[in-house]
Structures are given as C-alpha cells and as structure tokens.
Amino acid sequence: MNKIFSVARMEILDIRRSKLMLSLLGFFLIAAIVSVVVASIDFGVKADAYKTYTDALAASGITNPATAPQLFPLHLMRAAIEYLEILGALFAIILGYAAIAKEKQRGTLSLLFTRPIGNFTLVLGKLGALALVWLAFVSIVVLATMLTAVIAGHAQLSATDVGRLLLTILGAWIYLLVWTAVAVSIASTSKKLTTALIVSIVLWLLVVLVIPQVGDTMDPDNQVPGGLFKSLQIAKPDETAVLANFTGYNSARDALEISSVTKHFERYTFAFLGIKDQYNQQPIGTVWAGVFINALALWLFAIGTLVISLFTTKPKTLLRTSK
C-alpha cells in the first residue's frame, strides 16, 4: 500500500510542477467563471427587458400577461457544466495520457520495474492520484462558479441546492475519471505516444462532440427555429401521440445518444441542477428516481474503463510498448 501512495504522491507532485497542466486547468477555471458571469448578465438583460415591457404596458393601462423571468441559481451553471462535458473531457484525456507518456519518454519504467512492486501498483497509484486531482478540481470549479453566481448573479442558495451541487460534483468526477482511464489505457498499449494522443482525441471528438450533435440533429423538434411542434401549434399531448408513430426512428436516435457517456453525464447533471424543466425544483429523491439509469450508466462506464486500464497498464505491457 505504501508503494501505491509513493506513486500517487509523485504523480501529484509532477502535476503541480507542470506549467502546461496548471495553465490548462487555470484556463478551464477562468472559462467556467466567465460563463457564469455571462449567464448572470444575460439574465439581468432579460429581467430589465421584462420590466421595460411591463412598464410600457402599465402606462397604456394593460396588465402584462407574461410571467416575469425567474432566477434559478443553479441554472447559471449550465455553461460551466457544458464546459466540463466538452473541455473537461479533453483535459482529462491529456492528464491521463501525460501520466503514462512521461514515464515512457523519460525511460524510467525499466528502472521502476526493477523494484519489487506488484502488477497493479503503478496504475493504482497513478489513477488514485488523478482521481484526487479531479475531485479537487471539480470541487474548486463548482465552488468558484457558485460563488460567482452568488456575487455576480445575486443568487441565493438553499440547503437542497448544496445537496444538488454535491451530486453534480460526484457525477462530474466520475465522468472525468472515465476519460482519464481511457487515455491511460490507450497510452499504455500504444507503441507510439503521438498515435495514442491522437487516437484519444479522435475518440473524444466522436463521443463528446459528434454523437451528441448527430442525436440533436435527428430530433425533429430541433429542425425548426423555436421548435417544430410549436411552429405547427401542436399541444404537448398531441405531440406525444404523433411521435408514438415514429418509435423506430426515435429509438435509433436514443440508442445513438445513450452510447455516449457524455449524454448520460449531461442528463444526470441537468436533472440535478434543475436545468431540465421536468426536474426543476423537484425533491432530490424524485430527480434521483428519474436519472437512476444515467447514474448507473456513468458508474458502469467508470468501472469498465478503470478495469480495462488496470489490465492494460501492467508492467509487461508497459515495457513492451515503451521499447
């Protein structure tokens, strides 16, 4: 166990010393904070527009029939979560790749494996360290964006909101671990490190950007600005009845979407943050029941990728691919 801790300690020290890693993580944190500031300003603009509209109607003796825009503090984090979804996954790949690549590049593996260490010591130490780094990073990002929402957006948090945020941190942490484990596996089994990095990035491109984009494109309601069914003036129950005739098409679209871990992460976090309308202001238990499948899928992706990385990062494989 001490050896695993030694590897983990060394890994954390390396990350702390890497200017590139710190710059990337710093860049992400700034982008996330800016996104909350932008969302807060955007809300302020909409609230002002509503007030101006209401005042103009009042001056004409008419009551404004539209409801005032309501601030839900957790909604301000939506863009930050989407950054975690896209850029977070990319940076998780970079960190996972770097953890293995540096050992291969420095030629330290042969020396390391002359010591009496077990088959899984190195990978457990490295994954443990990266898990800690991601937990700290996700917590900092969520805390910083929430503080920004409170200061810039004048938002107020309830105790339930804190619970929702903790569950969001948990989901984001698992999601980033999945990508780190994928990159560790690919870097361990590739003889050429550049190939490993590009293969990981192509995978990221397909799973994080292309599959969800294709899924969204295939949604008939997204094909007309403002929504297809709104433009056809069709009520929700009728919409459901009409779509029941297209189960084959919708099942294919859904199957495509759920093949991407990113979509599960999105559905999970959007539900807990109340971004998805049906879960907004619902008790945590209700939300949990609704997204249990997505939470389970996230865990299964994590367990699967971690197990694969354990078995692909054995000394024998590493020594063979680093020659």
């Binding site: 800016v34 996104s35 932008v38 939506r78 863009a79 989407e82 950054y83 979804e85 850029l87």
Partner: peptide, 10 residues
Amino acid sequence: PQIGTAARPV
C-alpha cells in the same frame, strides 16, 4: 462566441 453572444457551449 460565448462571451459575445451568451450562447452555451453545446
């Protein structure tokens, strides 16, 4: 683009 338009990344 997000800073200029308030559009979300996705």
